[in-house]
Write a protein that binds this DNA or RNA. Structure first.
Lengths: 199, 199
DNA sequence: AGCTATAGTCTAGGGGTCCTAGGAAATGGG
DNA sequence: CCCATTTCCTAGGACCCCTAGACTATAGCT
């Protein structure tokens, strides 16, 4: 009986593919074992359990997404960078719905795994450096990062959940929302509580 | 052996409470039965199954959330209405994380249940009528609604997932994001592809 | 080649969950 | 008081997660 030749990486990748097909929440150890031509107990030699597998998929996805965004925005700045960033983000989520869902889990990921992963940290750096093209100073910069992340994530997950039932094509709303985000970043309002106005 | 006196409504409500405590994805028929002092099989007299229960919780949450928003925004307009709307939305999500998660499910809800529920439809009406205070014409109005929903939902779910690890207090970012949203709605950019500018 | 250590896979099984089928008991209307 | 309905139960099948311990393929060493 030949070995299946599994490793943590192969198991994680197969899990990610399965999650993309059936949905992250329906990812199952038994189904994954069946897909790999193996008994479910065999997976526990590579992965601590279902939670561990989910966490690994989340980190894999964070890495992949970051790479995509980095490639898409390389050499761009300002509006072009923003559109490329958002487009790469959204495309990744649509191509890999299971993996994308994995990145949203409030689950605690094994800390030692997290320490090794570079994806999440790089993603933050990418975002800040892209937004630095706009004339934002802290703390506005952090607020703007949070607004942008909220908007992208919200749009994508509402779209995935079928939340945009209206007849208006989603594609056009997407493009117009990016227009709006861009102008907002260019004209970020002063904090009415902190700054006196120019009078 | 006295009866527990269950009805669909009581089961749904208890399910919603349980979901708020342990998380929507960990809501389970057996656990709900235990909480109600009943065997799990008994629940199937009131609810078609776990999926059905989840759908009912989602509709309950949509109703409750809509009522909250309606109360909070009653009599307000413009900026005040926006802040009240967003605040009610976020507070509901934080008080009832399980129910809120339920509203995001891409799951198909039993159509005949959906027909009876007024929550989702009223929520859309509320949003449009609130935004009508800003000078937006279709299709910009729909795009603005989508942007606002995306931002609110995204912010709330990132916050719930612990996505805002930075030292900046979330409360302040929230308030500043609403400032930004307000000014954006007041100065919604023209569509560069459609309209010539004023030159 | 033979031996050994490691690592990959298996069988067996316990406990949990979802759900169905069919029976018992409480309730309410005649 | 009796009967129909509704509520709840017991019993059981299918599937899932995970552990323990045995077996086997592979690689390195002599």
């Amino acid at each position: 009986m030949a070995r299946a030749g599994l490793t943590v990486e192969r198991v994680t990748l197969a899990g990610a593919e399965l999650a993309d097909e059936v949905g992250f929440e329906r990812l199952t150890m038994s189904a994954l074992a069946r897909r790999l031509g193996v008994k479910d107990a065999s997976l526990y030699a590579h992965v601590r359990g279902l939670e561990d597998l989910r966490g690994r998929i989340a980190l894999l996805a964070a890495d992949e997404k970051t790479v995509r965004i980095a490639e898409a925005t390389a050499g761009l700045a300002g509006r072009d960078a923003l559109v490329a960033y958002a487009g790469a983000y959204r495309d990744y989520a649509r191509e890999h719905p299971g993996r994308y869902t994995a990145t949203q889990i409030p689950t605690e990921i094994d800390p030692e795994l997290l320490a090794v992963a570079r994806g999440p940290k790089r993603a933050v750096e990418l975002t800040y450096s892209m937004l630095r093209a706009y004339a934002l100073r802290e703390p506005d910069l952090t607020d703007a990062v949070r607004l942008m992340r909220s908007m992208l994530h919200g749009f994508i997950s509402l779209e995935a959940a079928g939340g945009f039932a209206h007849t208006r094509p989603v594609e056009e709303s997407w493009s117009r929302c990016l227009d709006a985000l861009h102008t907002l970043l260019e004209h970020w309002p002063d904090d009415p509580d902190k700054e006196g106005n120019t009078t």
